[in-house]
Structures are given as C-alpha cells and as structure tokens.
C-alpha cells in the first residue's frame, strides 16, 4: 500500500480534523462526536438536513454541508456507518425546532443507525423524517427501485432539498422535494480499478488490465457485467441506454447531467464522456438544463466514473438554480457571482 497516511487507524479522524482546520469559517467539528455542522447553525426556523455515511467518498458526504445544502454530517470510518450518537449530536447542534430531515444513501448499516437516531430524537420531542437516496440503476430492477443503493445522485438530493430548506420550507415540504428528487434521479457507474481501504491495506477487488465492470457500486459491490474495456463512447452509450430506458425519457424532456469521477479518473476522460452524453441526448431531443462534471462521490482511488441524470420540471429547475456554497462545492445564484451569495 502506497498512501500518505500516519497510523491507518487514525485516518478518519485526521482527515476530518484537516477539513475542520481548513474551513473554520464554514464548518464546526463537534467536541464529543465525529460530526461536522455548519458554522452558522442552528438557523432559526430552518429545517436541519442531516446526512452521513462512511468515509472514502469525498466530497460525499461532508463536502455537502453548507449554505443551500446540508446542515450537518455524521462521519463513519472508511465504508462504515457512523454511530447513532454522532447523528443525534449533529441533529441537536443544528435543529431549531423546525424539524430534522435525515437524507442519506440506502445502505443497511446507515439505515439502522439513522433509524435509531430518529428514535432517540423522538424522546426529546425533536421531529425527524427520513428520505433514502436510491439512484443506482444497476443495484436492483426498476420495479424494486426503492431497494437500490445510493450513489452520486445524493448530490442532487442535497442540492434541491437544501435549496428548499434554505428557502425556509417546512419539514413536510423539504422531505417532499427530497423524495421527488430521488424519484427523478438515475445513476450508473463503471469501474476500471479497485481502491485500497487504509486499515485493510490491500485492493478491495481484482480486475484484469483490460477489463471493466459495468454497474459496480461505490464500495466495490458487484455490478451487472464484467467485460473487455471498450472505447469511451461505447461505454458511455451503454450506461446512458440503461439510465434512459429506466426512466424512460422522451424527446422534449429536460435533465441535469452529472458526470462523476470515482477517484483516479482524470477530468480529461470525464469530459470525453460528457461529450458523448451531450451528443446522445441531443440526438434524442432531450435538453441539458445544467451539467456538472467532476468528482462528487468517489471511492477512494477507484478508477472509473458514473453518470447521473435528473429529470427536471419547473419546481426542480428553480431549486437547482439556487445558490449553494460549501468548502467543496460552490454554485453562484442565477445572477452569477455578484447576484449569488
């Protein structure tokens, strides 16, 4: 293993302390739980959005704590769920009586700990709702979509629910927007090479020099098929077919596109992928309203990328356009930098 770490056991705490030290104006690390919250929280009357999950996916999850996004995050070890106490601590530090939305990816360990946190908050009369992100088309068939895993589509759920909460929407409204966003989001990924969990020290799976795995999850979960590596355009077309057919999307639809690198894929390659997506959508008469290309939900140094499409309507477009700012993500408002925050 070749990594810039100290004692691998301290990997999570040390990188979180680094993030907190770098961005004290935006984030606050809680004293007795490994959870980060917005420096300006709690905000009076605002629904607090709390997320969380294992480490190894930066900018997911903690990178989306900020203005117009989430209010707090509970941080687990690499690929491990955070504990319920961390979730409770993040919720208590950010809620202001307007309720708490738990918004996170669908993984059994996380579900258990967030459910338990909800039960604990209920004892102190803090109302919470949970919305699970289930966007990975490869992880379960269409008619079972609520069993799917959450991957890069988390970003859109944070962005839109976050905008609704920032606009002082009620807990009902923020949860409704989160649910609507999840139902309109589809992702699929492809992996070329594994990652190494620091505490384990060896690759999470093996894959041949000329092989790719279509549909692999962000922890190396088995995908749909493994086969010979094909040119970027062909791989992109295969993922896009699966995603578009899953909706389905007709001519005239408007979408937001997210091309996400899994950790060690160069931006150049991500833009080669975006080029093909733009062509394919253009051919089908589907309009790209906004696009995002970069690293949003990684898997340490895994090689590969994922594509996420969000089908938009007027409400979702307006929320997508709202300004947002965190140490890892900045989007100016409709008026550009000057009109934004």
């Amino acid at each position: 293993m070749k990594k810039f770490v100290n004692d691998p056991k301290n990997f999570t705490r040390e990188y979180v302390e680094g993030v907190a030290a770098a961005h004290p104006d935006q984030l606050r690390l809680l004293d007795d739980a490994l959870s980060l919250v917005r420096a300006d929280s709690p905000k009076d009357g605002k629904v607090a959005i709390i997320t969380g999950g294992g480490s190894g996916h930066l900018p997911t999850f903690l990178g989306y704590v900020g203005y117009g996004l989430c209010d707090g995050v509970a941080i687990g070890d690499v690929f491990q769920s955070p504990g319920a106490d961390q979730i409770v601590a993040a919720a208590e530090a950010t809620q202001s009586g307007a309720g708490v939305l738990f918004l996170f990816g669908h993984y059994s360990g996380d579900v258990m700990n967030f459910d338990m946190a909800a039960e604990i908050l209920e004892m102190s009369d803090i109302e919470s709702k949970t919305v699970l992100v289930t966007d990975d088309v490869a992880s379960a068939p269409r008619d079972n979509w609520q069993k799917r895993r959450g991957v890069a589509g988390l970003f859109f759920a944070y962005k839109l629910a976050g905008a609704k909460a920032e606009a002082m929407g009620s807990l009902e409204e923020v949860a409704r927007v989160a649910e609507k966003t999840v139902a309109a989001t589809r992702s699929m990924g492809v992996a070329l090479s594994p990652c190494i969990i620091p505490e384990v020290g060896k690759p999470t799976f093996e894959i041949g020099e000329n092989e790719m795995e279509i549909g692999m999850g962000i922890h190396g979960e088995r995908g749909i098929r493994r086969g010979e590596l094909k040119p970027a355009d062909e791989v992109t077309a295969e993922l896009m077919d699966a995603i578009i057919n899953d909706f389905p999307l007709d001519s005239g639809a408007e979408v937001a596109v997210l091309v996400n690198g899994l950790g060690s894929t160069p931006l150049e390659e991500l833009y080669i992928v975006y080029r093909k997506i733009d062509q394919l959508l253009g051919d089908k008469g589907i309009k790209v309203y906004r696009n995002y290309v970069g690293e949003f939900a990684t898997s340490m140094e895994m090689g590969g990328f994922s594509i996420t499409l969000l089908k938009l309507d007027d409400e979702l477009k307006e929320l997508l356009d709202a300004p947002a700012q965190s140490p890892f993500f900045i989007q100016p408002g409709p008026g550009g930098i000057a009109g934004g925050r």
Binding site: P82, D85, M112, N113, M116
Partner: peptide, 25 residues
C-alpha cells in the same frame, strides 16, 4: 435503559451493537 441504549451504541456502533442498543432502548 432508555439512556443505556445510547451508552451502548456509542462504544459499539457495529450492526449487532446497534441492534442490541435498540433492544435496550
């Protein structure tokens, strides 16, 4: 026992730890 569940989960956030904590709560 209500607070004991949280005490337990804090030091044992594993899957089984969370299940036992739930039982305690």
């Amino acid at each position: 026992f209500m607070t004991g569940g949280l005490t337990f989960n804090k030091v044992a956030p594993s899957t089984m730890g969370t299940l036992v904590s739930t039982g305690i709560m």
